[in-house]
Amino acid sequence: MNDILFYLVKKLLMIIPVLLGITIAAFILGIISPSDPAAVLLNMDGVSTPSAQEIANKRHEMGLDRPLIVQYLSWLLQILHGDLGISYITQRPIWDELMLRLPVTISLASCTLLLVIVTAIPLGVFMAYKNNSRSDFVLRTAALIFTSVPAFWLAILFMWIFSEELHLLPTSGYGTLAHLIMPSVALGAGTIGILMRLQRAALLEVLEQHFILTAKAKGMPFPMIIWKHGLLNSLIPVITLLGNYFGAIISGSAVIESIFSLPGLGSYVLEAIRGRDYPAIQGYVIFTGLVFVLFNLLVDISYLLLNPKIRLGGK
């Protein structure tokens, strides 16, 4: 029990320097990016041509003329008070902006993850079960195709078939489950392919172990061996991938969100990057960094549950 507690405390303490590193990286990103946010903001309408004095005034108003270290420390202090700042473009609190978009991204990520889990893991297990058969070959090829096809291409293809031609699914928007079907499949296809192969390989490796041989020798039916002894032991690499993948969707589904007009975090940060809305970009980096760290922690905790070796400190 003490070992588990020590493991968790160690993992939690490691989060502090990681988060501090994220804030520094996010701040530096803002500094090294080309262009002046004040000039970009004043030219947001694409029509105005602000004078040098107007740009200087705006820089002052935005606090960009202060020394960098002062800017960083005041920003860090603000974050420690739970305030991510105000967006240059919308003039609204960044936290509110993120919370407005988070449900969309969470819905998309959850649907995609669910789709990946319910398709890739059973198919991976089936491939291992039918190892080197014709079915295995067909599914391996399918997995390779899924992995190779770019998500945006699939998105366009789906839109053509299911929206333009069949009028079955909406091209864009958010609100119902129907709006999430095409984005989830397009976003998840690549990972389904990877996970199918990973699950297959992990299970095949486990099936080589002595305890499987023992189970076979005891006369246990093969499907039962896979279900009771193989699957659980093969899940660690799969869960690692899924944990990171969920974080990756939350932070990086910008292209799919943009194609299907899903107003999620990805499209928000794309807009912020275009408008050099540094507080928004920095807020996003910190937020998604935190999500990644938390998911890694959850994955680590799942290791504790799944793998007794880790639970027992490798003994």
Binding site: T171, S172, S258, S261, P263
Partner: peptide, 18 residues
């Protein structure tokens, strides 16, 4: 008035009758 940022998606939405 829907907000559809992608031009190709607006084209598809027109074709789909949305």
């Amino acid at each position: 008035i829907k907000n559809i940022p992608n031009a190709e998606t607006r084209y598809s939405a027109l074709k789909a009758g949305e």
